[in-house]
Amino acid sequence: MNQEQRILILMTTTEMRRKGNRMTLYDLVNSLTSVDEDKTIYAKRPWQPGTAVVVATELDEGGVPDEAAKAGAEYFLEVFLANDVLKGWLSSLDKEPTIEEKCLRLIKYAEEDA
């Protein structure tokens, strides 16, 4: 990731936080290990660190829970899977990535592998 991309991500994240109390992917990733692993992450597209997310219990019958649907969010990843993806990725790195880099890794996984 080059400097220009980092600046864009930081600007987007800051802008999303100013729009209210909603949780962003950045906020969630920053505290992911404290989130109930039985929950599912729903995110509004386009997926980026500043994307609004909803963490909710997946419906038994499938589909998107009402609170996620009202936010215009769709399935992103289960919390346990997001934790597993980051743990596996972190074990192969020499340094701790930034929160933005962790977000981008989860987005890549959700788009390509989930």
Rank of each mutant, 00 (worst) to 15 (best):
V54E: 10
Q5M: 11
T12E: 15
Y109R: 00
G72H: 08
I7E: 14
E15S: 14
K44T: 14
R17H: 15
L8W: 08
Y26M: 03
R22Q: 13
R105H: 10
L104P: 00
S92C: 01
A69D: 14
Q3I: 12
F76S: 09
D38R: 14
V55N: 07
A56Y: 06
I9H: 13
S92E: 13
E67P: 06
L59T: 09
E74G: 15
K108H: 13
L93H: 02
M11F: 03
S31L: 03
N2Y: 04
V54N: 02
L86P: 06
T12H: 12
A114W: 07
L59Q: 13
C103K: 03
R45F: 08
L81T: 15
Y75A: 11
D84T: 11
E101K: 02
I99E: 02
E67G: 01
A71H: 06
A43P: 01
Y26I: 04
P97F: 03
M11N: 13
I7M: 09
R105F: 00
V54R: 12
N21S: 14
R17D: 05
A73Y: 03
F80E: 13
F80G: 00
Y42D: 03
T24G: 06
Y109D: 06
P97T: 03
Y42F: 15
V53H: 04
G50W: 04
P49L: 06
E4V: 10
R6M: 12
L86A: 04
T40Q: 07
K70H: 09
K102W: 01
K44F: 02
R18D: 09
V79C: 08
A71S: 10
T14I: 11
I9D: 15
V85R: 01
Q5W: 02
F80L: 05
L59V: 05
M1K: 05
K70A: 15
V54S: 04
V79M: 08
V29C: 04
G72N: 08
R6T: 11
K70L: 14
T14D: 11
N21W: 04
T24R: 10
D113W: 07
L90H: 06
V79F: 09
V53W: 05
E112C: 05
A43W: 01
E37Y: 00
R17S: 09
E96M: 13
F76K: 10
D66E: 15
G50K: 05
N83L: 08
D38F: 01
A114K: 05
